[in-house]
Design a protein around this nucleic acid. Structure first.
Length: 274
DNA sequence: AACAGGTCCAACCGCCGCCAA
DNA sequence: ATTGGCGGCGGTTGGACCTGT
């Protein structure tokens, strides 16, 4: 009989395994997952350890049913981001990508009805999913060498918007300007943060999307997001993730979305093809 | 009580992008 | 330029649990 004592374990985790993993993470911290099985004394692969921690054992995980606010936000975010559960999870504090994916698949993606969301929302959600499946990702690389052009001409600023009693973040180049209302505090580090995000912006440009259309679409998306979600929630204090006086929202929302998706949503078929 | 079918969710799988060698 | 290791992701699955008959 072959000795399987060193075989990697699969299946449900035992309490003892949970204890060993928890103790290991508490001692060494998250990360270096390839070292975790040895350090913890577990016969589990690195991925299994990581998954167990991130989806179940981590103290940051929020248990219990999704609140109506969370469901509403999930619907909006899914409309904006599609099936990118990790990005959506980043907007729902305490919820894991797996939780959200499971929630979505059981509530909105199953064949029979009975969902907790309204019928309209469910239909909308389903339509969005089917629309996404029809989209063919472009393969253009026409900006690969020129993208620095835009980057070099971008500027970022935050200034008060007297009429709305809020701040407005502006992302500009010589021809285009993206204005985005945001609850940015006067002394925030918004500018430097946006500059860091210019890296991802650069990557989007390298995919061949024209700068003008990105700005156009991004502005549409942000305006819509602000009008429908952010502003009402801030005004009514309903945002579950925003503590009074915090800058959570400028960390979480400002420009931190996929420009490519924004472009695709509003301008299907208008890409620069390779 | 027993069974069938439906629901839920933890866990696995395969793939991808990044990065260092 | 290539390769291999790693972290991370979304899709899928298996089985426990629930509900109705």
């Amino acid at each position: 009989m072959m000795d399987r004592s060193f075989a990697v374990r699969k299946g449900a985790w035992t309490e003892e395994e949970d204890f060993l993993l928890r103790r290991c993470i508490e001692k060494y911290g998250e990360g270096k997952w390839s070292h975790v099985p040895l350090r913890a004394g577990l016969r589990r692969c690195r991925k299994s350890c990581r998954l167990r921690w991130l989806n179940y054992l981590s103290p940051t995980i929020k248990r219990g049913d999704f609140t109506q606010d969370e469901v509403d936000l999930l619907l909006k975010l899914h409309k904006l981001l599609g099936n990118r559960w990790s990005l959506i999870a980043g907007r729902l504090p305490g919820r894991t990508a797996n939780d959200i994916k499971n929630f979505w698949n059981t509530r909105f993606n199953r064949k029979n009805s009975g969902a907790t969301a309204t019928e309209g929302e469910e239909i909308e959600a389903r339509n969005h999913v089917s629309k996404r499946n029809e989209v063919i990702r472009p393969q253009p690389w026409t900006f690969s060498k020129n993208s620095k052009w835009l980057l070099g001409n971008l500027s970022f600023s935050t200034s008060p918007e007297p009429s709305a009693n809020i701040n407005t973040t502006r992302l500009c180049n010589s021809k285009e300007m993206l204005c985005m209302p945001s609850p940015v505090l006067p002394n925030s580090t918004e500018g430097s943060r946006l500059e860091q995000e210019s890296d991802s912006f650069d990557k989007e440009l390298e995919k061949g999307i024209s700068a003008g259309s990105i700005f156009e679409c991004a502005e549409d998306m942000i305006r819509s997001l602000w009008d429908e979600d952010l502003q009402p929630m801030i005004q009514t204090g309903n945002d579950p993730s925003l503590e009074e006086g915090s800058t959570v929202w400028d960390e979480e929302f400002c420009l931190d979305f996929d420009f490519w998706d924004a472009h695709r949503t509003n301008h299907d078929g208008n890409y620069l093809q390779a």
